[in-house]
């Protein structure tokens, strides 16, 4: 999709008047749909649809050996796959740059121990830990990928059930874990402070959140903030343009405010989800 100058001016004027293309105000989000437990054989999963953006996240868990320098911590790994279903540009290795950018931003947002406590994933210090793979599949791109991905990841981690370990048998170098056989005998992960990302997009003189594809094209630069609890965990500037420090501070504040509202909305939605609801693409 490419816009001509007149169309860009139209979008810009809309942002100026606080009345965007689809009738939203500058701080409004498009409607979202969230489903959890959508991938049956994963430990946790979620699918988030933000207008036209569709993200599927599945969490898999394996037993691994902790890093020697972080012997008390488990491992968390993000992998983003840009499916060619989203756009033909992603065919082959086409989506790899975007995928790596999103995955790196996520892992830096989750790195702080206040955002996500990796020590809970440790089973036996220096010997055994859980390795959590968070696999993100982008099925459709309708703008604002970062926000959608972060919300879906948080929901999927919330949904994740880690099997309980009842005991550890150590016999020399042999370590045997006694993992619970019961299907529902599981621990939930603590995702209370897991970061929520907000993309603040500068269009003309004003900043907006949740840009659509058309708005992303008009923007000179955008800032992705990851907010965990009431603190920033990552700030990333993307795009080609440059920003004045005053604008930067302002957009950080805007991002912070919106992220907290978004987080509240996410928790309210997660609380409403009841097990056994009909989910999936067939709905």
């Amino acid at each position: 999709m490419s816009l001509c100058e007149a169309e860009k001016t139209f979008v810009l004027h809309g942002v100026e008047e606080n009345f965007r293309l689809d009738g939203r105000e500058r701080e409004d989000y498009r409607p979202m749909e969230l489903e959890t437990d959508i991938v049956l054989h994963a430990f946790g999963s979620a699918r988030l649809r933000l207008a036209n953006t569709d993200v599927l996240v599945a969490v898999k868990i394996e037993i691994d050996v902790p890093f020697p320098e972080r012997s008390k911590e488990g491992k968390l790994e993000f992998f983003v796959d840009c499916s060619a279903n989203a756009t033909p540009d992603f065919e082959g290795r086409g989506g790899e740059d975007l995928a790596v950018e999103i995955a790196n931003t996520l892992s830096s947002a989750y790195r702080s121990k206040h955002a996500f406590d990796l020590t809970k994933l440790c089973i036996l210090k220096g010997k055994k830990c859980w390795k959590v793979y968070v696999d993100i599949l982008l099925l459709e791109c309708g703008g604002n990928l970062f926000d959608a991905v972060s919300l879906a990841v948080k929901a999927a981690l919330w949904n994740t059930q880690v099997p309980k370990v009842h005991g550890v048998n150590i016999d020399g170098n042999n370590i045997e874990l006694n993992v619970s056989e019961e299907l529902y005998d599981c621990d939930r992960l603590d995702v209370k402070n897991a970061p929520v990302m907000v993309t603040v997009c500068k269009i003309g003189e004003k900043c907006i959140v949740d840009p659509s594809v058309a708005e992303e094209q008009c923007s000179v630069g955008s800032i992705v903030v990851a907010v965990s609890g009431d603190k920033f965990s990552t700030v990333l500037q993307t795009g080609t343009g440059s920003l004045h420090p005053a604008t930067l501070m302002e957009s950080l504040k805007l991002g912070h405010r919106v992220a907290q509202r978004l987080d509240e909305a996410l928790w309210a939605t997660l609380r409403q989800i009841k097990p056994g609801q009909d989910v999936g693409f067939l709905k």
Binding site: V39, H41, F79, D81, L137
Partner: peptide, 10 residues
Amino acid sequence: SMAVFSTTDR
């Protein structure tokens, strides 16, 4: 293409 989580082993 196959999602990395599509099989039992990742």
